[in-house]
Design a protein around this nucleic acid. Structure first.
Lengths: 226, 226
DNA sequence: GTAGTTTGATAGTATTACTTTCGTTTAAGA
DNA sequence: TCTTAAACGAAAGTAATACTATCAAACTAC
């Protein structure tokens, strides 16, 4: 599991200057970075504060990441890689396409409840970061460059996989990619709304969100295929 | 039209320290602010640069807005107020509920093409800001406070209106609020994807996005009502 | 013509976002 | 065990940002 993650995050997305997973300090940066971004929010989080917390020098952190934006991209990438792994696991060996699509949507849209750490990262804190900060990872003037560098690979991959599951149920679906990215991103946004702007969702949205997205997707399916 | 906007933005959402629409300098701050945020992106935009461009003092700008985040909230609020007005206009006098819902979705999701300025603001620049920066307006540690202050009123109102249109077609719809906010926010996100991460949408997404959202919504409608 | 508002100019502070240098520690290899 | 390179910590420095405060001039309203 950890190995898969490392390969995914490391090899295909060189968002870092020096591989943080390769050293003790690097791992502590990730671990404490997740905790602090979760607590303070990205704007209030600084490398200075992180360094103080780790009793290390700011300059040491800059050896791993150019800036906090790159650290965020790295963490969000890790998050989606983990979800990608989970998606593969949750849909393995399911022959029926419709059943498999339903499981895929649930796998992707369900909140992270795993207690404890995955590798050394606090998964639930990472999930909260993904919900509230991930838009900041790609909504910048630098998107196009970062996209060319492959920074958003894991997000793209999970959308692609969901798209393939949609197409396996309805090969003639008119907009599978859009539907897939809408489910992946939209489920995060809806979690944020449910928490902070609850009037924008139903009262039970929190509990039923996954089912609502399942319905949403299946409703757009070509009825002839079913 | 301008009057309606002023009332909406001013009275219900005191995001500013001093009403920028009431003075010449205030209006120039809004006008040039839109241009510069569009050009530079929110991160590179500063009150210092804006002041220089306006040949005024930084401190004069701080008299109107606490910080650039508040200015962004103000502008996004203005944007959604304008769309709210347009929505009311586009759906006026349409008796048939289904027809009206379709028009509502198109009204909300279509890109802004209006040439020239609305009041003194460049509407198309404002639209680009809404597409690429609006997540930053509410995805912060301060959301809850700002929400209580009513900062996101116009966004909420447009979601509410769409929700009502959905309910008028299918009063038993299980998740109208979620669907509405997903259309409103999702259409902006998809525009961003189409522009910057095109592999996440279909090739024709740009041209057909509105139709796709219309299909999405109608597909989830209770067939018995149709 | 005076009182009040609005502005422009200047200055100043705290923090951020880095960069550079350098001596010490640690690990790895031969 | 000696050697060499990598990694680290400490310190110092720079440029920009995000403000705040003060004050005098201008303009505006009664």
């Amino acid at each position: 599991m950890q190995r898969l993650m490392q390969v995914n995050v490391q090899v295909t997305e060189p968002v870092y200057l020096k591989d943080p997973q390769a050293t003790e300090l690097g791992r502590r940066i990730l671990e404490q970075g997740v905790r602090m971004i979760d607590e303070l929010g990205l704007e209030a989080f600084t490398f200075g504060k992180l360094a103080a917390e780790l009793s290390t020098a700011e300059s040491s952190i800059y050896r791993y990441f150019e800036n906090k934006h790159r650290l965020l991209i790295y963490l969000i990438g890790w998050y989606w890689s983990w979800r990608e792994y989970k998606l593969a696991f949750d849909t393995a060996n399911i022959a029926d396409h419709r059943e498999r699509l339903g499981r895929a949507i649930r796998s992707i849209t369900e909140p992270v409840t795993e207690r404890g750490n995955f590798a050394y990262l606090d998964l639930r804190a990472l999930y909260r970061i993904a919900v509230s900060e991930s838009a900041k990872a790609y909504m910048t003037k630098g998107v196009d460059t970062e996209h060319r560098e492959g920074c958003f690979g894991s997000f793209k991959r999970i959308c692609d996989r969901l798209k393939e599951h949609i197409l396996s149920v309805d090969p003639a679906h008119p907009f599978p990619a859009m539907l897939a990215s809408n489910v992946v991103d939209g489920s995060m946004v809806q979690r944020f709304f449910a928490e902070h702007l609850p009037s924008l969702t139903e009262k039970q949205a929190r509990a039923k969100l996954s089912e609502l997205f399942v319905e949403l997707v299946f409703a757009t399916m070509n009825k002839k295929n079913q």
